[in-house]
């Protein structure tokens, strides 16, 4: 019994390491650069990134571009090398995370600064087109009741609220945009931090609605924000780095026609559109990304 238990614990640790170490490249197997007339679009994970990738795909196909897709790439750590070796050509990415990935020392946080810093920071052979106003980033949210009672609509207002609890993923406690930033940038002290490991999902929401926490870190495109009438706090100091959707492309494949098409998409796409499409994708109907992409493109007259 003793041995089984010990080996079980050791195995659990090994699995833990395995999970975090699997930045391996799932696209490596067939990494032959795609034929010159075909554009391969990748997407990290599923859901939102895949919906946007589908929008790119259908709009470009309407322009006569031949498209292949490689969705479900696990991490940016795998996707960027895949772009460099040509196993994918185009990737919808998020500006702030992309910038800190290619430049660990980057300090830009406002949407314009991040976008301006990207071209110089990107590795040779990669470039970005115009960023979209649509953004999916961490945001601090409170209930309408809390907001009304304490007159809180911005992170800065939290400084006058004493002894509130903030729920977020555990890393929020250490990251620059998290507790350290709230203290340094906004001078908010005495926050009771409640780590909830579900990325602003149902358990975080439940804790907020139960008043176990008063402030919750939830991604801006999560439908639960609008569904529960939450108040997303403004971030006047740009503590939380911008995460605008931005097309990342291999320079070798970046033609003016593709750039024009993607720029039109980026200009038309809004955070509210993402919330709406994520809601339909995750909700009871589980509407597929390609269907959502087609609906959106049709509604915006981009097909």
């Amino acid at each position: 019994m003793k041995l089984t238990k010990v080996s079980a614990v050791v195995a659990a640790i090994a699995i833990g390491f395995g999970l975090t170490a699997c930045g391996g490249d799932p696209t490596k197997d067939d990494s032959a650069p795609s034929a010159s007339d075909t554009l391969t679009i990748g997407a990290v994970g599923s859901g939102e990134a895949q919906i946007v990738a589908e929008i790119y795909k259908q709009a470009l196909e309407a322009q006569g571009v031949k498209i292949k897709t490689k969705y479900g790439i696990e991490t940016r750590e795998a996707a960027v090398p895949a772009l460099q070796d040509g196993s994918i050509d185009l990737l919808p990415d998020y500006s702030g995370n992309l910038l800190t990935f290619v430049d660990k020392a980057a300090t830009a946080t406002s949407p314009a600064d991040v976008e301006a810093a990207l071209p110089a920071a990107l590795p040779k052979g990669l470039e970005v087109f115009k960023a979209s106003p649509a953004e999916d980033k961490d945001s601090l949210n409170v209930t309408k009741a809390f907001s009304d009672k304490n007159g809180v609509t911005s992170i800065a207002d939290l400084a006058k609220v004493k002894g509130f609890a903030l729920g977020a993923n555990p890393e929020f406690k250490e990251r620059a945009y998290g507790i350290p930033g709230l203290e340094k940038v906004y001078g908010i002290t005495g926050i009771k931090f409640v780590p909830i490991s579900d990325f602003g999902g149902p358990k975080t929401l439940k804790a907020l609605l139960d008043d176990d926490i008063q402030v919750a870190d939830i991604y801006t495109t999560t439908p639960s924000i609008t569904e529960n009438n939450l108040v997303t706090l403004a971030d006047p100091q740009n503590l939380i780095a911008a995460q605008n959707l931005i097309p990342l492309i291999r320079t070798a494949k970046a033609t003016t026609a593709i750039e024009d098409t993607l720029n039109k998409i980026s200009a038309a796409l809004t955070t509210a559109d993402l919330v709406d499409m994520n809601g339909k994708n995750n909700g009871a109907d589980k509407v597929a990304p390609d269907v959502l992409a087609k609906e959106w493109l049709t509604a915006k007259n981009l097909l």
Partner: peptide, 13 residues
């Protein structure tokens, strides 16, 4: 374990 994993702090994990 969970905090260590969140910030890739393997010694802590």
């Amino acid at each position: 374990l969970i905090d260590g994993l969140a910030i890739r702090d393997y010694p802590q994990m």
